[in-house]
């Protein structure tokens, strides 16, 4: 049986610069697929186009050409309310700088996507409790973001991204602003929800250690996918880490 891939990208191209301005081709030609339950990392140097790619996938930006399908829906043509609803229902996103709303408590931040879908209050409470238990942040619910550490904030952000059961979780350098201990915890948590709850995760990172938690890694260089690395079943994380470092060593030359 053929399953619908969670992400399907065909011939994706992005050119920046308006008419009369100097054009800059951020993405030349990207094709890839991602199946449900995968944990994919996208790596590349600064300016390689990895953030541009993520913006296309997560509907924050529109491609110049090509198609992006998330859970079978063509997203590059979505507009207005459809686009907003699509984001609210199908996508979860964690940012490098958390993007929590400072004026809301952790619980209110997490509940936001559900409030937007007009869930009943009891249902909201139930779902928030469930996701916070999974992420181990039940004790933080009444606190405001400024009372939380970076690691705690990112967990709250993660809970907010997962509370509505999105088809896919996108991460933009989710450990970028964390210390090494918090970063490791965060990555373990992502791995756990990937394995135990079959959540599809796609994250952009430039850090080999973070990437080593993924099952598959796409290396981007000058707007194209230059290499792909798949973690073998029996391969340990540290071995995979070594492999990534090797690829980076040769790939970036």
């Amino acid at each position: 049986m053929l399953k619908t891939p969670v992400v399907k990208v065909v011939n994706l191209q992005k050119i920046y610069g308006k008419r009369n301005e100097k054009k800059y081709m951020a993405l030349k030609q990207i094709d890839f697929e991602m199946q449900k339950g995968e944990f994919v990392g996208i790596m590349g140097a600064s300016g390689s186009g990895k953030t541009t790619l993520l913006n296309m996938l997560s509907t924050f930006d529109k491609p110049t050409a090509g198609s992006v399908k998330i859970a079978g829906d063509e997203v590059s043509s979505l507009k207005g309310n459809h686009l907003a609803d699509f984001r609210a229902q199908k996508i979860g996103f964690i940012f490098q700088d958390f993007n929590l709303i400072e004026s809301l408590t952790a619980a209110e931040n997490i509940a936001l996507p559900l409030s937007l879908q007009n869930c009943s209050a009891s249902e909201i409470d139930k779902k928030v409790t469930k996701v916070t238990q999974i992420l181990g942040i039940s004790a933080l619910l009444k606190k405001y973001p400024y009372e939380l550490s970076g690691g705690q904030k990112q967990r709250v952000a993660c809970a907010r991204a997962l509370v509505h059961n999105p088809a896919i979780l996108f991460g933009d350098e989710p450990t970028g602003a964390l210390d090494s201990k918090s970063a490791r915890e965060m990555l373990k948590l992502l791995t756990k929800i990937n394995i135990e709850h079959a959540t599809s995760i796609l994250m952009v990172t430039h850090d080999a250690f973070s990437a080593s938690f993924c099952n598959r890694i796409l290396f981007i260089k000058d707007g194209c996918i230059g290499r792909e690395l798949i973690k073998e079943n029996e391969q340990t994380r540290s071995a995979f880490y070594q492999e990534i470092l090797d690829v980076l060593g040769t790939f970036e030359q």
């Binding site: 309310n81 907003a84 609210a88 996508i91 937007l116």
Partner: peptide, 16 residues
């Protein structure tokens, strides 16, 4: 500005 951009990224309709 940042807060509203954030909300838009979370999928809040413009009308809301």
């Amino acid at each position: 500005v940042r807060r509203y951009q954030m909300l838009a990224k979370l999928g809040v309709r413009r009308s809301k």
